[in-house]
Each structure stands twice: as C-alpha cells, then as structure tokens.
C-alpha cells in the first residue's frame, strides 16, 4: 500500500532559499499535508508550515503544489502517480517568512480599509427580517475561508508587487460585493457608496476577469461571475447614468 515518494520542498527564509529533495513514505488516503507532517516528524523537525483544521475549513495551509495554488490538506496524494515528483513551494505573491510560511499581512491591511457592515437605523437586534433569496448571494461570498489563494494567483499582484498599494485583490473586492448585496447594510444611507469605493480605492478596474481566482478557490465560490462582474456592472450603471451623475456630484445616493 505505502510507497516512497520523491518530494521537493522549498526551504529557506526572506534572504535565501532552495528546493530540497526528500524521499518520504506515503500511505493510502493521505493528503500532501500528511506527507509534510511526516517530514517534520521524521526528517526535518524545524520545517515551517501553517495549518490548523486539516479539513479544508480554516484556510491556513495554502501553498503551491507543482506550481498550482492549493490547500495542502485538500490535495490527495492519489492525484499524483507514484513516480511523480511532488514540488511544494510557498505562495509566490507574499513575502516568505520561512519555508512554506509567508507573510500574509497585506490581506489583513486591505480588510481593515473596507468600511464595515453598518446596521440599519431603527431596527433593534432581533427585528432583522431578510428573505433567504435575498441573503443567498452574500452567503456565497461568506463561505470564503480566507486561504488567500485567490489573492496569490491574481496576476494583477502576482507579477506586479507595486500594484498591491492600489489593488485589494479578489477576496476583498468580493467582500465589498458581499456588503453591497447585504439586504440590510445601511452604509449607503449615510452617504457612503461601496461601488464607488471598489472602483476608486480598491482597484476594481484592474480586474480583467480572467477568472484565475475562481479557478483556485477551494470553496468553489464563483468570485468572478457572482461578485466581481456584478460589482463592475453596478459601477458602470452608476457612472454612465446621467441622472445619477447629477446626484453623485451632490454627494447623494439614489
């Protein structure tokens, strides 16, 4: 049942690093994270890796496996042939801390720049009424486990570090869409405009809907189709609506 697999794992830190070769046992039913843990327990106890739930729910163990952004806990060893080399490297879009661990603080900074949900005025806790069909859309986006694989894969920042300043990435543009589609968010009632914010502050215009984010999402959220494109359409509706243009200049919201 078990066999010896050839693994190449990136070892190093912010200054330097290299791919190192390991022969390691693999058993039936195992995932890549199991094999990384076996390496830790038997060959390199200081191999750094982030993980928590090992069930695809926490989004901690993101890495690139044979070049593809994936969760290590949800990548079955059975997708590789026994003689195939499995190469595990840290997410490329974020600075390396050590081995497979990267500095993902960019994401937390972007999260802080999005105005939070604003509760509706005049409704006490317990009085919220929303229909299931109206919460479905935002609920899909709230399935996000914040693994940051979509952020990692998005070519706007993957090969252009300088874009990080003006582009918040699919995860956080989707967060804006989620709030925009929340039936009871009252951000707009107080003069806020999430659509405008997505365009002007968070770089929605950078996205040219190549759907790479959707492809790597382990939760199978249709980020591009259901969040980013509708958000773009809403922005366009606003910008090219002459009547709205008038209101916008007055700082009002239709």
């Amino acid at each position: 049942m078990g066999y010896q697999a050839h693994f190449r794992v990136w070892r190093g830190d912010a200054d330097a690093g290299e791919l190192r070769d390991y022969q390691v046992e693999v058993n039936e039913g195992e995932v890549v994270l199991d094999v990384i843990h076996r390496l830790q327990a038997t060959q390199c106890p200081d191999l750094a890796v982030r993980w928590n739930c090992k069930a695809g729910k926490c989004g901690s163990c993101s890495a690139e496996i044979n070049g593809r952004p994936r969760l290590m806990c949800m990548t079955r060893m059975s997708v590789f042939t026994e003689d195939e080399t499995v190469t595990v490297t840290p997410m490329r879009s974020f600075p390396v801390v050590r081995d497979l661990v990267t500095d993902v603080s960019y994401n937390y900074e972007k999260a802080r720049e999005i105005p939070s949900f604003r509760p509706p005025a005049g409704l006490a806790p317990g009085e919220y009424r929303m229909r299931q069909v109206d919460v479905n859309r935002s609920q899909e986006f709230r399935k996000c486990i914040e693994c940051f694989l979509c952020q990692n894969t998005c070519h706007v920042i993957r090969d252009h570090d300088d874009n990080k300043l003006s582009f918040s990435g699919p995860r956080y543009l989707m967060r804006i869409a989620e709030l925009e589609m929340h039936p009871l968010d009252s951000h707009g009632d107080t003069g806020g405009d999430r659509r405008e914010l997505a365009q002007a502050e968070h770089g929605l215009g950078f996205c040219n809907i190549t759907k790479c984010c959707t492809e790597v999402c382990p939760e199978h959220i249709k980020i591009t189709d259901n969040a980013l494109i509708p958000l773009k359409e809403r922005v366009v509706d606003r910008r090219y609506d002459p009547l709205f243009g008038l209101f916008r200049r007055r700082g009002d919201r239709t």
């Binding site: 830190d13 830790q40 106890p45 200081d46 750094a48 801390v97 081995d99």
Partner: peptide
C-alpha cells in the same frame, strides 16, 4: 529541539 527560534514547529 533542532534549529533556531524562527518559526520552529519542533
């Protein structure tokens, strides 16, 4: 434990 103190799971 082996190694140094930087992100050392051991």
């Amino acid at each position: 434990v082996e190694g140094h103190r930087q992100y050392n799971p051991g």
